[in-house]
Design a protein around this nucleic acid. Structure first.
Lengths: 202, 202
DNA sequence: CTATTTCTCATACGCTTCGTATGTAATTGT
DNA sequence: ACAATTACATACGAAGCGTATGAGAAATAG
């Protein structure tokens, strides 16, 4: 019955992350009591401090997990699209859709930046931005996107707009309708990146 | 020496807001001790709770003050520009410039949203977005901006992009150079709002 | 002009939370 | 098998926050 120790450790880490993710995503980081959510995982703060150093360390781990999931979803959806530009646009809209989940909004867009600072400076996270940057670079090479702009910069700006887009939809009392409006405005902004002569379909 | 009571009250409120603004802007909201920064204003938490209800109430007051200042600055710069579109673009870049200040970034873009939620839902704030919305509406009426997009939605998206733009510049190790890059990319995005036939000068 | 009421703000208390220091059982290396 | 390390729990101290209470000055009334 003595399972290998590595698995036990991984299990407690996973339980801790899961419990924290639940608490941070609903109650919020600041209001989440470490005693409470560690207890909900059948553990104490002792385990938390041992594995993650402090509360912020645990938040980092939660964010890394969520970011990995988001990147996976984006990459999956990204696979099927006729043109690379469409591919890129789909990536953005998928990102917005994911950002609609309250847990992601709360942890990734509100508490995360407040506690850990600018997401651009996070060590592991923002895989989505990385992917968007790659596509923009390629699109620039193909002459679809205007040559002047820095891909990563553009990706970050779009990222900020996406976050606002998601919040606007999520806080609307008619999400269906506002979603139409917001995504339309968003795509319109994106077209600013296209070279004028090459009139791309929306 | 007995100045009217109303003035005394206004003075303590102002002292409290100033001290909190200083503390929130540098130390950060969560790390700022109410005992400490009230003491730095020559007061105690008693005054704070009396006037603002709680820590969040004080943060709201600080945000209202900063927002008013930002709106004033934007409106001032807005006055002089040849075309309305240029006017709008200047407004955005001014917004980005203001967002470079650490105090504004910290309070308005990081701690504020984390503590009080989506800025779009704030009662008094976001006067800047209101101004941008007005200009976009007018530009749409003039046929400069594409008719499809909702002005306030677009203003919010641009606002999100501006925030990211400012953070990117502020966290750069070569702010001058990155500023050029970021503003260029930002303006490129804005051009997505322009009607294609009416080729507007950058 | 005095008495009472109403403010403004300080003080005192309890509760919660966090971080650390310490303890203990289990596991690994030799 | 014995020492050393690891993985957690427990115990303790230090803040911080919110409330309840109190004091003193100003406004108001008679």
């Amino acid at each position: 019955m003595h399972r290998p120790r590595k698995e036990m450790i991984a299990e407690t880490r996973a339980k801790l992350i899961a419990a924290a993710r639940q608490a941070f995503g609903t109650t919020g980081y600041a209001e989440a009591s470490m005693d409470d959510f560690t207890a909900s995982a059948g553990l104490t703060r002792g385990a938390l401090y041992h594995h993650f150093g402090d509360k912020k360390g645990l938040l980092q781990a939660v964010i890394a997990e969520i970011d990995a999931e988001m990147a996976a979803r984006v990459n999956e959806v990204a696979s099927r699209a006729p043109t690379r530009w469409q591919h890129f646009v789909d990536e953005c809209t998928t990102y917005i859709e994911m950002a609609l989940e309250p847990e992601i909004q709360r942890i990734m867009f509100r508490d995360g930046p407040a506690v850990l600072g600018d997401p651009a400076q996070w060590p592991n996270a923002s895989a989505c931005v990385g992917s968007m940057t790659d596509h923009l670079t390629a699109l620039q090479g193909e002459g679809v996107v205007v040559p002047g702009v820095d891909p990563e910069t553009a990706a970050r700006l779009i990222n900020g707009a996406s976050s606002q887009a998601a919040q606007r939809i999520a806080n609307s009392n008619d999400p269906k309708a506002t979603s139409k409006m917001v995504v339309a405005a968003f795509k319109q902004l994106l077209e600013g990146l296209l070279r004028k002569p090459a009139q791309q379909p929306v």
